[in-house]
Design a protein around this nucleic acid. Structure first.
Lengths: 251, 251
DNA sequence: TTACATTTGTTCGTATGTATG
DNA sequence: ACATACATACGAACAAATGTA
């Protein structure tokens, strides 16, 4: 742009707007290919740099998939608004774990019973390092929840390091074995407090529990660790924050 | 790149690697500024295009903040691992809302009582459009939860469109008034089922409720809508999926 | 306040590499 | 093998924001 126009927007932004509108208007339907870079250069009388910068925006917005030798394929009519629950680390998941300790009651290799096995997925027949205990708030000395953790057999050597471990368990495994947790599924349900948990927490059997189950998987999708946590319902609170991703064709 | 080198990596990727390593090694500490683009061009004997492409990667990885006229400031030593709970839209939040309808029992402008006002934050003294009703699964005809929705006064004109509205309410407001929800906070707690809710859901007062409170804010941070949803505990289930963001300096 | 040097942002032109069909 | 289309890379110039004299 040689300063000939007084528009506040860069040319690639204007061009990006135009192409976004065309896609939204159905001029370039989903699945079809945009004109080639050179063709767009000619149509809009801009350089290839400008065209590429515009197309880059659309690509980042998820509207296009560009492949060398093939072309720019339209993937969506509108930049899908995507809300994300961002956390600096997984510590945000357990909003308690950072400052709490895990007091182990039972630990050992075992096969989970069928009821628990449900949570562990396909490899359920195998043995797991099963750790049972209480998550404690060291400041108050109060028990926060009853936890059962299932650690995949290959990481069972981590057992000695778990005693009175502060914070979450998965970073320990990551550090020791070099795996990376790439994916976590968390589900929250509510149940009457199981008798054993009620005893451990000093509650009556009439109380309810909020159960949080988490499954940690590595890049390959293998289950590294799973945990079942029963919280006294009256003390349970889980807050999450979602903000709209600053993507979109934000010209 | 004039095909002189047989390396599989583009030059900007190699340069990006180098700079990333330097930042990680503390050569460019957090808060300081990287050498200027021209300086990097000279040091690495590459064009400004290559330097800018490399710096773009680092910027996207969150390592740099670049400002015109100022420079490239180091923001972090490492591309922070960031787990995100991604959802194509906010529909993922209420995992039910898409196919359910909202049956309104009471609707009208009012001041929330102090107990409710707590959820609405600073502007609590004002009047809100308060909508009370049941979220219904049309397939089964069953009531899923008791909902109270607080809509900011300026959007109260939306009231007539809410009757037997299918799906979530916030898109309606967005479409009608042109606001965009940019931020949602959700909190999950558990309580004994409030008597009114128990009646509406046909449950006994001994049952528990899982309460989901959501606050929707626009870009300016103003509260657009808040909702309090009481679910029968035994039917409540909330699953979320977090995957590690595929950012980082992914060369 | 103005003026100015610095630094990143935008844009062009050109050439060659490389994956696709 | 070959044309096509995107990817990488260089050089040059001016615009616009920033910080400072």
């Amino acid at each position: 742009m040689t300063a000939r126009d007084r528009s506040p927007q860069p040319r690639y932004a204007q061009l990006g707007d135009t192409l976004t509108r065309r896609i939204a208007d159905g001029l370039y339907p989903v699945g079809t290919f945009l004109p080639t870079e050179v063709a767009l250069c000619e149509e809009f009388a801009v350089s290839r740099y400008t065209v590429r910068e515009a197309l880059r925006r659309l690509t980042e917005a998820g509207l296009l998939r560009r492949r060398q030798g093939s072309g720019s394929q339209v993937m969506a009519m509108h930049p899908q608004r995507s809300f994300v629950h961002a956390m600096r680390s997984l510590d945000g998941l357990f909003q308690y774990a950072v400052d709490t300790t895990f007091r182990i009651d039972r630990i050992g290799l075992a096969q989970p019973d069928p009821d628990e096995a449900m949570h562990l997925g396909d490899t359920a027949g195998a043995e797991w390092l099963i750790v049972n205990g209480l998550r404690i708030d060291p400041a108050e000395g109060a028990a926060l929840c009853v936890s059962t953790v299932y650690i995949a057999r290959i990481y069972a050597a981590i057992a000695p390091e778990l005693r009175s471990r502060k914070g979450a368990i998965y970073p320990l495994i990551e550090g020791r074995f070099g795996v990376k947790v790439a994916d976590v599924a968390q589900s929250i349900t509510a149940h009457p407090m199981p008798p054993a948990a009620a005893r451990a927490l000093g509650l009556s059997r009439k109380d309810w529990a909020v159960r949080v189950v988490r499954r940690y998987r590595d890049v390959a999708g293998a289950l590294v660790l799973a945990s079942i946590n029963d919280h006294p319902a009256e003390r349970f609170s889980y807050t999450m924050h979602l903000r709209q991703e600053e993507r979109g064709v934000g010209f």
